[in-house]
Amino acid sequence: MKILVPVDGSERALDAVRHALRLKREGLNATFVLATVQEPTYLYELMLAPDADVLERVSGAVGSRALEGAEALFNAADVSFEREIGSGDPAQTLVELAERLACDAIILGSRGLGTLRGTLFGSVSQAVLHAAKVPVTIIRHTESDAAN
């Protein structure tokens, strides 16, 4: 079983990571893909950046920072993982990643660092839940999650 675990650097995303690691500790035979999605580049950013390589490096650096906490938890648990950094609409990109990587399930936090747009028009987790062709588990945040 291959499980996509989207993260954005938020504590709620780490709740999903902790849940995935708990399932692994309890005997689930699974591999994991940690994924993050960066917002698309806008024309304004394209005009300010000297070239596409600069934008790619900046986006990759931001994506790597978003993955740091999740990677640290996986490394501490001695569980191997793949990593993916996507760009575009977060929900759509996550669903496409899950399909492209042949993931069997998605585990994600209930809310993350989404923008006001996400609050007004529905969260990424809800959009993934409705669009994914594989089972989706949304992990609700509780204060005790951080201790596990």
Rank of each mutant, 00 (worst) to 15 (best):
P50A: 06
P50R: 06
P50L: 03
P50Y: 06
D51T: 08
A52D: 13
A52S: 14
D53N: 13
D53W: 10
D53S: 09
V54I: 08
V54S: 13
V54Y: 14
V54M: 11
L55H: 04
L55K: 02
L55Y: 06
E56Q: 09
E56I: 00
R57N: 11
R57Q: 13
V58R: 00
S59V: 07
S59R: 01
S59Y: 03
G60W: 07
G60F: 06
G60V: 11
G60K: 12
A61H: 15
A61N: 13
V62C: 05
V62M: 13
V62A: 10
V62F: 10
G63K: 01
G63C: 04
G63R: 00
G63Q: 02
G63E: 10
S64P: 03
S64E: 15
R65C: 12
R65P: 03
R65L: 14
A66Y: 12
A66E: 15
A66H: 08
A66V: 00
L67T: 04
L67A: 07
E68C: 02
E68K: 04
E68G: 02
G69P: 06
G69H: 03
A70P: 00
A70S: 05
A70D: 10
E71N: 01
E71T: 09
E71W: 01
E71H: 07
E71P: 04
A72V: 01
A72P: 02
A72H: 06
L73W: 13
L73T: 09
F74G: 07
N75G: 08
N75H: 12
N75D: 15
N75F: 11
A76Y: 04
A77F: 07
A77H: 02
A77Y: 02
V79W: 07
V79I: 06
S80F: 11
S80L: 11
S80C: 02
S80I: 00
S80R: 10
S80H: 13
F81L: 04
F81E: 11
F81N: 04
E82H: 05
R83G: 02
R83D: 09
R83N: 05
R83S: 14
R83W: 08
R83V: 15
E84I: 09
E84C: 09
E84V: 13
I85K: 00
G86A: 09
G86Q: 03
G86F: 05
S87K: 13
S87W: 08
S87I: 09
S87V: 07
S87R: 15
S87C: 08
S87P: 01
G88A: 01
G88R: 04
D89Q: 12
D89I: 02
D89Y: 12
P90V: 02
P90E: 12
P90D: 11
A91I: 06
A91M: 03
Q92V: 00
